[in-house]
Design a protein around this nucleic acid. Structure first.
Lengths: 170, 170
DNA sequence: TATAACATGTAACAAGTTACATGATTTC
DNA sequence: GAAATCATGTAACTTGTTACATGTTATA
């Protein structure tokens, strides 16, 4: 439901069409949320069927038609409820990467270290990308801030694991 | 693929049947990975079809039959490859919870604080659960260690957010 | 004149979950 | 005799992804 909450929250601030929503998410929130275009369009359709949003077709000249969505009273109510549910809950993150770590003692340090170096590079790139995202108004920036915190902590943890393995190998 | 890697890794250590695998994951890894029973059985079937594991039916008296799986040479090769792929990559975690934080300025501090307190409790419970898991042999324990680190950092972050909101409200 | 950006969607697939079905054995 | 544990699975559903289809307008 996080995705619906996000779309509703964005539509609450201003009416938008799908392309606009997708673009905003891609350029401004890419490092925190990952919603593919078909998913967004699907969700918008569904929320419209459920009466959470309404659309108005907007055609300028011969340019492709845009479906501009606005949030309804029902949508607003849903937003308020989803928001409270989200704030009150903690959904623990799952780290697929840790499953590799769990079996790292099956790989020799000589082989493991370059692999972890590649992992570290990917992590660094991710961190750089988050740090490069533009500032956001209001509490939206909390999402970015949290991500930076988390990635920084991840880097420290990974460095520690690498150090341990270096010591094992010597 | 993380799930297959995990199942293969466990079967590499010793032959096991589905129920046994499920139980080990539930009791010893529950806080790090979440694999439902039907998913595990499905994956075991699939890996068997793919020749990664073989099964032997084991029936004691009238008790329910158990399908004991062993890893094959192909499965071992797959394990080695999946492990290296996993170690070399960094898949960033996504925090569904952050979407709520992104819109927390739409809720008054008076209402937000109790909600975040509930979130903090859930987080604390999670941390307590991880800390209570028994020790694991070899590098399996890295998974637990990482989870503890992460949850501790999450607690600090959440406390900071709470403090900020308390100050806003005063 | 080719390519990128604008704009929305569908169809087929993949992964995983929930709820249900089955039936024996051990424990209270 | 009821409930929990052992043991494996199926069917239907939910969620999301990939690849494809379509057509316009601005840009290089």
């Amino acid at each position: 439901m996080g995705r619906k909450l996000l779309l509703l929250g964005l539509l609450r601030r201003q009416d938008m069409h799908g392309y606009q929503l997708n673009e905003f998410i891609e350029t401004s929130l890419a490092t925190c949320v990952d919603i593919k275009k078909p998913t967004a369009y699907y969700l918008l359709n569904k929320m419209q069927e459920d009466g959470w949003i309404t659309d108005e077709e907007d055609q300028e000249g011969n340019r492709p038609m845009r479906r501009v969505y606005s949030i309804t009273a029902q949508g607003e109510a849903a937003f308020q409820q989803l928001l409270r549910e989200n704030l009150a809950s903690y959904v623990p993150a799952q780290f697929t990467n840790d499953i590799g770590l769990a079996f790292i003692d099956e790989v020799s340090p000589q082989e493991a270290l370059p692999l972890l170096a590649r992992r570290r590079q990917a992590l660094e790139a991710q961190l750089a990308a988050v740090q490069a995202t533009p500032d956001h108004p209001g509490s939206l920036h909390l999402m970015i801030e949290h991500q930076i915190r988390h990635l920084t902590a991840e880097q420290q943890w990974l460095d520690e694991v690498i150090t341990r393995i270096e010591q094992t190998g010597s």
